[in-house]
C-alpha cells in the first residue's frame, strides 16, 4: 500500500529541473503583468451556485452512481421503489402558470427522480429534482441548488412540511428559462432511512445521534438498533491517525466501551462510525 514509492519525482528533484535564472525570470514576468487586468479566475465551469450544502456527499454519491435514498432493512421499501401501484402512473409534479412563472410543486415526494426529470422535460425544462431524507428540522428546505442562469429559479420551501406522503416544496421557473438546474430538497426520513446531511446537521444527526462526540459505541449501537440501521462501517481514529487500521474495522474489532467521534451517512446504504479508544 505504498503510494509514496510511486511518486514520479520528489520536490528536490523537481527543483533541479529549473535553473535559478529561469525561476526568477518567471516571477519577474508575472509581476510585470498588471494585477488589475481581467483576472480570468479559473473556475470549474459557468455554473452559478447559490447553495452548496451537502455537496461533498451528494457529489461523491453521484460519481459513484449510487442511489442514496434507500437505507432500509431488507423488508422495507423506501425511496424510489414500489410505493404502491397507483402511484406508478400518476403525475409526480404539478404545473401551473403564474405571472410569467411556471410554478411546479411536488405531488409525490418519494418518486423516482427520473420521473420528475421526465415531467420537467415534458414542459421543455432541463431540471433535475431530488428529494432526500434529512433531519426533521431540515425537511422542506433546499439542501442543494445549482442553476445555470444565475439565480433565476425561485424555490418554494416548506420548512417542516415535507413528509414522505405530502410535501409542499416546489420551484418557480421563469417561463423563458432554458438552462439546466439541479435542486435537492430535504424530506422527512422513513424509519431506518439515513439522513443525507444538510446545513446545520451536526455530525451524527443522520443516525439519530445528535450528541455524538463522547458517546460510547454501545450507546450508538442501541440507537442504531432502534432505528433499524444495520449497515455500519467502522473507521478507526486514534490521536489523529487511522493507524493501525487504515482500512477500517470489523464489528468484532470494535469495543463497546470505545467512543464514537463522528457518525455520518455514507452511500452504499451504510452508516460510517468513526471510533476510537479515547474521547476525541
Amino acid at each position: 500500500m505504498n503510494v509514496e514509492r510511486l511518486n514520479p519525482i520528489s520536490e528536490e528533484e523537481a527543483a533541479t529541473m529549473v535553473s535559478r535564472q529561469t525561476r526568477d525570470d518567471l516571477a519577474e514576468r508575472i509581476m510585470t503583468t498588471s494585477p488589475d487586468e481581467a483576472p480570468a479566475p479559473v473556475r470549474h465551469g459557468r455554473w452559478g451556485r447559490r447553495l452548496l450544502v451537502g455537496v461533498p456527499l451528494a457529489a461523491a454519491v453521484a460519481a459513484a452512481g449510487v442511489v442514496v435514498l434507500s437505507a432500509a432493512g431488507p423488508d422495507q421499501k423506501v425511496g424510489s421503489v414500489s410505493v404502491g401501484p397507483h402511484r406508478a402512473d400518476a403525475a409526480v409534479l404539478s404545473f401551473r402558470k403564474e405571472d410569467g412563472y411556471l410554478v411546479v410543486t411536488v405531488k409525490d415526494p418519494v418518486a423516482d427522480p427520473a420521473r420528475y426529470r421526465k415531467e420537467f422535460a415534458a414542459h421543455g425544462l432541463d431540471i433535475k429534482l431530488d428529494l432526500r431524507p434529512v433531519s426533521p428540522r431540515n425537511a422542506g428546505t433546499v439542501i442543494f441548488l445549482e442553476d445555470q442562469e444565475g439565480s433565476r429559479i425561485e424555490v418554494i420551501q416548506a420548512k417542516g412540511e415535507c413528509g414522505v406522503e405530502i410535501c409542499s416544496v416546489g420551484v418557480k421557473v421563469p417561463v423563458d428559462y432554458k438552462g439546466y438546474a439541479h435542486i435537492v430538497f430535504g424530506r422527512a426520513a422513513r424509519p431506518g432511512e439515513m439522513y443525507d446531511t444538510s446545513e446545520g446537521d451536526r455530525p451524527g444527526e443522520g443516525v439519530g445521534l445528535p450528541e455524538v462526540p463522547g458517546r460510547t459505541v454501545a450507546e450508538a449501537w442501541d440507537v442504531l438498533t432502534q432505528r433499524k440501521i444495520t449497515g455500519v462501517e467502522y473507521r478507526y481514529e486514534f490521536r489523529g491517525s487511522d493507524r493501525p487500521y487504515p482500512n477500517g474495522l470489523s464489528r468484532d474489532q470494535v469495543k463497546p466501551e470505545w467512543y464514537v467521534h463522528d457518525a455520518v451517512a455514507g452511500s452504499e446504504g451504510q452508516v460510517i462510525l468513526f471510533v476510537g479508544p479515547e474521547k476525541e
Binding site: 519525482i9 520536490e11 518567471l26 487586468e37 479566475p41
Partner: peptide, 28 residues
C-alpha cells in the same frame, strides 16, 4: 512545480500550468 510535473506528460504542459498557477496567485 513538483505537483505539476507529477501530473503532466511533458515539459510544455508543466511549464504552462506552473506559470498560470502563479499568475493567478499574483492576480488574486
Amino acid at each position: 512545480l513538483a505537483y505539476v510535473v507529477r501530473r503532466t506528460d511533458n515539459g510544455h504542459d508543466a511549464a504552462d500550468v506552473l506559470a498560470e498557477t502563479f499568475l493567478v496567485a499574483w492576480r488574486r
